[in-house]
Nucleic acid binder design. Sequence first.
DNA 1: TGTATCTTGTGAAAACTTTCACGTGAAAGT
DNA 2: ACTTTCACGTGAAAGTTTTCACAAGATACA
Lengths: 221, 221
Amino acid sequence: MRNVSQSTVRRLSVYVRVLEDLERRGGETVSSRGLADRAGTTSAQVRKDLSYFGSFGKRGLGYSVPELLKSLRAILGLDRAWGVAVVGAGRIGQALARYPDFADKGFDVRAVFDNDPQKIGQRWDDLEVLDVGDLPQVFRERQIEIVILATGAESAQSVANQVVACGVRAILNFAPVKLQVPAGVGLNNVNMVPELESLSFALTNPQATARGVSGASQEPS
Amino acid sequence: MRNVSQSTVRRLSVYVRVLEDLERRGGETVSSRGLADRAGTTSAQVRKDLSYFGSFGKRGLGYSVPELLKSLRAILGLDRAWGVAVVGAGRIGQALARYPDFADKGFDVRAVFDNDPQKIGQRWDDLEVLDVGDLPQVFRERQIEIVILATGAESAQSVANQVVACGVRAILNFAPVKLQVPAGVGLNNVNMVPELESLSFALTNPQATARGVSGASQEPS
DNA sequence: TGTATCTTGTGAAAACTTTCACGTGAAAGT
DNA sequence: ACTTTCACGTGAAAGTTTTCACAAGATACA
Ligand SMILES: NC(=O)c1ccc[n+]([C@@H]2O[C@H](COP(=O)([O-])OP(=O)(O)OC[C@H]3O[C@@H](n4cnc5c(N)ncnc54)[C@H](O)[C@@H]3O)[C@@H](O)[C@H]2O)c1
Ligand SMILES: NC(=O)c1ccc[n+]([C@@H]2O[C@H](COP(=O)([O-])OP(=O)(O)OC[C@H]3O[C@@H](n4cnc5c(N)ncnc54)[C@H](O)[C@@H]3O)[C@@H](O)[C@H]2O)c1
């Protein structure tokens, strides 16, 4: 398995979601076409994506829903729980720390940190906001592997440095800064402003945005 | 200007951010290289991106910071204010509605809606949570053009239908569902779980994630 | 004026991603 | 057993995006 593109990985996520849904409904098998329609892509794309990782289907029949789900979960590393910490207990940090979907998907938020004495000690559900000074110790104790960074932009780089120094190798960053992290550390950024700006562009330049979209299947019947 | 790719538009956003920063520091001109280094891309990419929209630089000299900023703002539609509404006054809706960066960038959150009587009437800063039943009237009065959709997944499609019926042609969706919208309506999705899953993949398959990244300039000196 | 230096704008090439199309194996029915 | 149908897996083709590389315009300075 070499050189799998980011878009493929993102689509695998979607396939997992679709397969979970099918399994819940009692579906036994699904074809690349069935998967594609529900995931919003094409059957060829589904087969190509899966082919990077092996052969999972039966010719003439399709894929076994539970088996493919199991395989994809293993590929994405979703067959285990991950220890997650949120740093920055502001509005977005709170929304994220208490977002139930994370735990459902195996991303256990095991700690929340802030450096504001007003915030430290607050209890949210079964989480307590901890002092960012205790971060190294707590990270070790609670086996934190993924950090959700939700401090203000000015502190983001320094927090990133700290958590990397603690051995964390994956950061989901919400602060609007381009973080510098050493090679080998995974970094994904979530930026809302560019999302709005891309909508602004689409509204301003309707002709440059012919993108079909919406509703119909991607391929001929 | 035909067929500008989504990635180009996203990068234009970044260039605007970098240029604003340069302008604040009093920078007069910048080269494609200077812009690229700060934006995390390459000089050729910068020039190519800009070339879709015209010629903005002076050979031998680079780009005038204020002029390029003005041009890019016009291209992205950021030389005006947009009327934004948040639907769904839950945790994430609240964080978004009160996020000061939106207003700074010309995205005016002019209304927040919910359907929960407990939520309706709450005041946040100078926003009041309104009844989603009043949505059509308020949208007309306050000239809402972009909707941030932050309800639970089950209501998302029905809210989308409502706001499209009110003439809204741009939606930023936070609910984890694939919304169906008519052609001509811009739709961007923000999904946190796939972001975490892609980190999980990177942690699980380090060899498939050789991506250099981080710190150094993208191009030779 | 001439020359040296800089950096744009852009075709062409390379790299990457998606789509096509078909050989092949598996199942079902006659 | 044979035929038909289905749908995977995969090379090859098509399409898209990024990178390369260079001609040409602009400035600076002797
Ligand atoms: N609110 C949103 O909807 C939203 C959306 C996208 C991105 N963001 C970004 O997320 C970040 C947080 O936004 P917010 O709205 O929650 O802001 P906020 O000010 O409410 O929260 C920031 C929190 O981080 C804490 N903090 C600051 N420095 C810290 C440090 N060194 N260590 C630990 N904690 C520290 C602060 O005490 C505060 O509680 C910002 O960078 C913002 O740009 C916010
Ligand atoms: N909390 C997070 O960090 C987070 C992150 C990413 C995505 N999301 C998604 O955003 C959405 C909201 O998440 P949340 O954590 O804020 O949940 P929440 O339950 O706190 O908020 C949802 C709000 O929407 C309101 N609502 C429901 N149906 C409505 C309708 N038809 N019209 C108007 N309002 C309606 C509810 O009354 C509630 O106030 C969910 O789809 C969630 O999956 C949340």
